[in-house]
Design a protein around this nucleic acid. Structure first.
Lengths: 356, 356
DNA sequence: CATGCAAGTGAAACAGTTCCAGCCGGGCAT
DNA sequence: ATGCCCGGCTGGAACTGTTTCACTTGCATG
């Protein structure tokens, strides 16, 4: 609605000045800049090319672009977003906030300058304050794959509590009593859900939560190895591990195979999978699966809908389901005397068939 | 250089008409459209917003956006592109050609309409003609991860011939004589390189190429399983497999572990890895590795350089190196009598330590 | 005190797109 | 035959946003 000239007229400045503010040019008086920004926030503004409004949204990363450290979550998410943008005919830009945003401009300013009308945000380690800031500026935005208590922050996430709880209960029903939990060492809502599911499942089964069985580490292969070493090395070792992120899970599996620990005969493993990694290895991972592609598609649809309808007050705090999928890495708890074999090489497992 | 009004003046039409042609509006006479397009191709054209030229390039997919079927090649590539765009201050758009391009517009028209000044192209199954078409239109473009004989097509790829040959020679030096080759079933230059390397390495070692040991299948996990079943089921089975794509390699490993075939004691496997998948499993894959991130970064740099300098005649037919990395899936060829054990369950491998 | 420099601003020029009015030719009813 | 209407096509004008250039103003300095 509001054009550069309209805003300029209201404030008794020239369109040139408004444009300069929008593009973060240095030579504009601080007071003037404030006035213009205030009015823009008040009236709203959509970037245009000529008379046409630009139908572009962005997927914004707080820092490093498109890390592949979370397995194939990112491509699955991107693929979903592209599908979600198909029908409303929007384009997608990729943004690196740290790199492109000038320190002295607001987020709204930054996004307008980049010619986008809305933004899908990825939430990582330390950028929760950033996201809250963006929310208070009321620029159309939605966070994927994380949850926020702060009002005004829109998000779409997969709630892994139910299926995480199913996972732990599944392990309990298989006779496991020493179930380890390998957590991510930075708190986000997903991992909090999984922690709660673990606690609740144990509590309801009358099992204690042993602090020695809970470990917090970065999401990485080597963390997984450390988890396996720690949990099988205890005096009363774990017979099952629930790992709350994909890379740690892979690390656990890799280390178990390296040490010749038979999964699932000697140790059961439940992981979390964002994409199809669980099927890439043998045995196929029993895992809590979240559909990153669906997450992306839904987020894109919500955002474009909000933009198109102009309902800036719309709020999204949606949750989609995750699924616990039983595959080959979970089995009955081993007999007590069979545990504690510590040879570092492969173990004889010729009795495999009989045990099934 | 050429603006809408300049072109309009040269052709005695109005700027409105030129704009309509550029945006593929239906209500413009076919003859007029042709004239305008011809002049635009002649003079060149860069999309602008107001007086500013837009520094945006696109990563264009022929069809489905950002398939994750090639493992984490895509995120690694994207990450590299973003890094490559950092210094020249360009933005990146994601484009799905099939979805967004109108059938009756040229590629140049399409890209201009999307406001981009250059494009990085992904080459898949059937879009080689598309890419050649784009090249003849002379819009700034570069293909990543494939090679073209056609002049005018710019590309940047990783040459996997030397390291593929190293890989096969490595297997030969380990005593393998029955080395299978699992190829992708659609021809592209990468896979052609690997085929040549296989043939040459065998030939130079005085070994015959047995057609029974060469198989062409889609890049997928199930293909890998089929490869393993076929190659170990021969009367004179393979003792090593070279798989020319990541997913097939994973399928082979998965199936080998499922059948209890010990890699590398009973069977050696060499794969190809675009990212870090080779380290995600145990044993770590011996693999020909290509740095998708470097590919993306170099492509982005070349493209932005061409755009900035205006050297539309510039040509890029570069190749970066791949590396053959020896990890845990390659070992000495098994003794002849030890082969042909066909029990479907796990095999006793208690003598593992001694063999080392 | 005059001069010069830097900051800040606006008018104008210029970039692209769309709206609206008009032209023109063909089809159709009277 | 003639008048009318309608749709294809076009251009002018209006309206986007951005940049260039000239100008004012205030402050420091010779």
């Amino acid at each position: 609605m509001a054009s550069v000239r309209a805003i300029a007229a209201q404030l008794n400045v020239s369109p040139a000045t408004v444009s300069r503010v929008l593009n973060n040019h240095p030579d504009v008086d601080e007071a003037t800049r404030e006035r213009v920004l205030a009015r823009i926030n008040e009236l709203g503004y959509s970037p245009r090319i000529g008379r046409r409004i630009t139908n572009v949204i962005a997927l914004a990363y707080p820092d490093e672009p498109v890390r592949s450290e979370y397995g194939s979550f990112e491509p699955a998410l991107l693929s979903g977003i592209m599908r979600g943008l198909e029908e409303p005919q929007f384009d997608l830009k990729l943004l690196n906030i740290r790199r492109d945003k000038a320190p002295n401009e607001t987020y709204t300013q930054f996004f307008i300058r980049k010619g986008i009308r809305g933004v899908i945000l990825r939430c990582f380690r330390n950028n929760r304050p950033t996201i809250c800031k963006i929310a208070t500026e009321r620029f159309p935005a939605i966070v994927v794959a994380d949850a926020f208590d702060e009002p005004g922050v829109n998000f779409l996430r997969a709630d892994s509590y139910p299926s995480s709880r199913q996972a732990v209960e599944h392990l309990i029903s298989l006779g496991h009593r020493r179930i380890a939990l390998a957590m991510h060492n930075v708190p986000d809502s997903d991992h909090a859900d999984r922690r709660r599911a673990y606690d609740d499942a144990l509590f309801c089964a009358g099992l204690p939560v042993d602090p020695a069985l809970v470990i917090e580490l970065p999401a990485s292969l080597s963390s997984g190895e450390q988890v396996l070493d720690t949990m099988t090395g205890l005096d009363d070792p774990a017979t099952a591990i629930f790992a709350t992120n994909p890379m740690t899970t892979l690390g656990i599996m890799r280390r178990a195979q390296e040490k010749g620990i038979d999964v699932p005969k000697q140790l059961s493993v439940v992981g979390v999978d964002d994409s199809d990694v669980r099927t890439h290895i043998w045995p196929r991972l029993s895992a809590v699966t979240q559909d990153a592609s669906a997450l992306g598609m839904e987020a894109a649809r919500w955002l474009t809908e909000v933009i198109a309808s102009g309902k800036t007050a719309a709020s999204c705090r949606r949750t989609i389901d995750t699924v616990f999928e039983v595959n080959g890495t979970t089995g009955p708890a081993p007999q007590r005397q069979a545990r504690r074999r510590q040879d570092r090489g492969r173990v004889t497992t010729g009795d495999a068939e009989k045990a099934d």
